[in-house]
Computed example of a mutant assay.
Amino acid sequence: MYNDTFFHTLQYLKSTEAYRHFLEFSRSAGHFPLADYQNEKIEVWCSNDYLGMGQDQQVINDFKASLSRYGAGSGGSRNISGNTLAHVALEKRLADLYQRESALVFNNGYLANTESLGVLVGLFDNIKVYSDELNHRSIIEGLKKSKVEKYIFKHNDLKHLEIGLSLEPFERPKIIVFESIYSMDGDFAPVEEIVRLAKKYNALTFIDETHSFGVLGERGLGLIEALQVRDIDFIQGGFGKAIGTTGGFIVGDRDAVDCIRSLAPGFIFTTSLPPALLEATLTSINKVVAAPGRRKKLFLNVRHLKAALRRHQIDFIDAESHILPIIIPGLARIKAVSDKLLKQFKIYVQPINYPSVPRGQERFRVTVTPDHSLEQIERFASALKSALDLS
């Protein structure tokens, strides 16, 4: 009976094109964007390590040195022996960078969203949540934790958002939840306009800066820094993208963040991240903040890649960010293109399919980095054109 359920569930996933396949390969320190796959070198074109900081030698060296000092793990949850000086130092640094009163580190960005939002919307009687329809699953799950009224506004649609806000009394608690960069299309949120509406209708604001932290802004603090927007109540971010390690965080006012720290079960009942990892994360953040060179090289390579794709007449979503989505409808076709790129050209780019994107909107989410050479960029565009023509 039990095995039948497992079997039929998997059969259903496969029949509806929702079954996920994972490529097994090994990153090669110091050789990014190259990786080892079946005793050969392949080029990675879909990594979230946007700046290649996971391969940075100083980050690696500090990770090793910290590992020798502290050991492999933290020893417990934050409230039971796992609240190390490394955790406190990283949180203080984040709060100082954003000029906010407090910060809190989570084991990953998913938890930072689900746990923070779960607590925040549960604190207020009769709060109404306004959430962009393309928000990440972690945001959706966090908002589900409390049975509050939700208004899902059309993606980046300010008129639709304002209609929903205007329906409620000024005094009713409200929170607007959105992302700075939407990772499947690479587009920006209209942050300044959302903040203006929040002020007009007495709403809190919560922004997910996961895909812009480290990439945008004078110091790499994200889209709100690039736009010089200060009036955001809660800023969420992660270390698993441009910072090159793992973990997530939230920053905001002291009492609000302390409520999250005190009430979020996914924070309270979880073994904290290893202190060595957090010291390596702090090293990476400090390097990214101090030197804009890799961010500039990233966007220079983005421009080169867009130009190469245009020369080969390959359509892509020309968004403002560093993410280049290439729509290739149909799971069978995009998988064939991906397989050809890997087998013939030693290029790895992962198909994105349902439920991450709607059926018929399958795509490659291409990410060039500062470490991709001009030759590799040209070769990628040429190989993709060949694979598309033969699919």
Results as ranks from 00 to 15, higher is better:
Y2F: 10
N3H: 14
T9Y: 08
F25N: 04
S28W: 15
A29V: 13
Q38E: 14
E40A: 13
E40R: 11
E43K: 04
D49F: 02
Y50I: 01
L51C: 05
M53S: 00
Q55T: 03
D56Y: 05
Q58P: 00
V59W: 07
I60D: 01
I60E: 03
D62V: 02
K64A: 08
S68P: 05
I80P: 00
H87Q: 03
L90C: 07
L90H: 09
E91P: 04
A95N: 09
A95H: 12
L97M: 14
Y98S: 01
R100V: 06
S102F: 02
S102G: 02
L104I: 14
L104T: 04
V105Q: 05
N108A: 09
Y110K: 08
L111Q: 11
E115I: 09
G118W: 09
V121H: 00
F124K: 03
E133L: 08
H136P: 00
I139P: 01
F153A: 11
K154V: 01
L161G: 02
R172N: 15
I176S: 07
S180E: 12
I181D: 01
M184W: 06
M184V: 09
G186N: 01
D187G: 03
F188S: 04
K199W: 06
A203Y: 01
T205V: 13
S212H: 04
G214Q: 02
G220Y: 09
V229Y: 04
R230G: 15
R230W: 11
A242R: 02
T246D: 10
D253A: 10
D255S: 15
I260A: 08
I260C: 06
L263Q: 12
P265Y: 10
T270E: 10
P274G: 01
T283R: 01
V289W: 03
F299M: 13
L305K: 04
L309V: 00
A319F: 06
E320W: 06
S321C: 03
I327T: 15
I327S: 12
G330C: 06
G330N: 09
L341T: 06
K343S: 15
K346S: 14
Y348P: 01
P351N: 07
V357W: 07
R363K: 13
V368L: 05
L374D: 11
A381K: 06
A383Q: 06
L384N: 10
